[in-house]
Design a protein around this nucleic acid. Sequence first.
DNA 1: ACAATAGTGTCTCTAAGACAGTATACT
DNA 2: AGTATACTGTCTTAGAGACACTATTGT
Lengths: 310, 310
Amino acid sequence: MGFVDVSASERPYLPPAVAVSTVAFALRPPSGESTIDGSPGLSGEAESSATLWIPLVRRTREPFRGRWALPGGPTRWDETLADTALRSIRSAAHVTPRYLEQLYAFGGVERSADAQRLVTIAYWAMIGEGELTAGASRGSDAEPAPPQFRYRAGAGVGVGVRRRWDDTGTDRSSVPRPGDEGGATGEHERPRGNVAWCSADRLPELAFDHADIVEYALARLRSKTEYAAVAHRFLGAVFTIGQLRAVHEAVLGYAVDPANFRRQTLARGTLIDTGERETGSPHRPARLYRFSNDAAPEFPDSRPSTRRSS
Amino acid sequence: MGFVDVSASERPYLPPAVAVSTVAFALRPPSGESTIDGSPGLSGEAESSATLWIPLVRRTREPFRGRWALPGGPTRWDETLADTALRSIRSAAHVTPRYLEQLYAFGGVERSADAQRLVTIAYWAMIGEGELTAGASRGSDAEPAPPQFRYRAGAGVGVGVRRRWDDTGTDRSSVPRPGDEGGATGEHERPRGNVAWCSADRLPELAFDHADIVEYALARLRSKTEYAAVAHRFLGAVFTIGQLRAVHEAVLGYAVDPANFRRQTLARGTLIDTGERETGSPHRPARLYRFSNDAAPEFPDSRPSTRRSS
DNA sequence: ACAATAGTGTCTCTAAGACAGTATACT
DNA sequence: AGTATACTGTCTTAGAGACACTATTGT
């Protein structure tokens, strides 16, 4: 599905195929899933505690057969781009992310005569702690609908999207080999066992330009101006401020002052004290907070906005 | 040439067509171009001085025949998405923008009811003052190559991804193609005379969801954290700080303190005093500045972040 | 002289960060 | 008791904004 069946000689003149690739971040790999480590040389290092993990799938056909790649594939005629991103994450990781946002559209041209051109729209997602525990959603598609799944679709990239000034040149190199990313038949069903989780810090060689996409997703994740509003989606429904701070430290890569983080976070007014307290910790128990939903993924100015043009 | 020729009944099952729409901002309409005003009721108002202007084209076929729409059209098999955006701006406005950045990919299934599905990648652009003066580019191709045309392409939004564009040597888009462009092209193609400039504050009813796209482009433009680095592209090669401030005020929609603006702008360290001075003004002449090209594509927080994955 | 903008100096206020100090759980 | 984290208070400093004041042109 995804491609028009014509002879290869006509392919360069076809409209480009549209595919989606997704970078799905989680604080840790799901229990029981296999992991890989693409940086074997650094093992002697102190291994800076927390990193972010993303699911990868192994390609089963050319080009880049055998290489790891981001989950994704062609968009179907009856689903939105965000739908495609969601489907690819569910298919690869068997979880539903708690946040989804469009990253960028890569539209390089490829001069190869017998390959159809490909436009890839990249998404990034956040997978919550609650979705990672074994048995939560392993039933393939017996997945219960998440209580309040919200994701940003449409023009919701938000304010302060990271700038890049003067990048010269064209983006023709963004897709080295447009071949059939995701497979010419467009199926997302990867055989189990061809999925692995990998630390975003130690990726293996990825297919296509997926390493660039991951790097870009990390850069956006770290732009904390917008990130503060959604960081809690890595956690469960209730959490302590210390846990929330750990998320920030994992994303940012450095430690932040607990006292100042507390004050700033509470000053945002988006956390609600549940009145409950943490139990079982070997220290003073912390208050448990919930995130105020009405304050969440909406951004100050750029809002989905009413459709004016009928 | 953007569509595959099949019967309409088969269209829903085709891969989506890929089109580009561009919001090209300028401080004023080019001299001699026709303008329209989509908000007839408000004329008695004080008309708050400066607004931003964008070129629109009138659709000559269904759907939305006769409505105004953003310049754009299907991407060709041998051009990148940014190339398509540039071509559409040149064709509609006969100018080459001084800045170009991808905005968002709109891929909803509802976008075209029974026609072929359409994925639109939106771009926004800045047109400089120097490109607007009559005669500068009306000779169809007498346009002198802009001294330093630079635009953002590909994944340049993020940090560190830029490396990929350095090796694509040819900046093909700096060669302004005359707007001839054989007429057979896709759905957004328009003959001359169906172009008008319109204030972004008083748009008419636009085709498709183009009103949303404009709104989103304005929102991004106003997120001033990133905007400060590119605001000068609305102006000529040299400019006064007062002119630069006027640009900010037009974009933001409110006045800013001249003294503070001066201090903050100079503190960025990106302006170079040319030593020259403004002449002919009925007041004390201002210093003329130039923008430092090498300046700060650097970000406060997220920095290039050495590629870890090999 | 007057109008108008360029440009400087300075005050206030807020928020970020550093960091000392107290509180309360577990072992 | 010792330890580890939760939580509070306070000091310093950088930057944004308000605003008074001087400088220099054209009319």
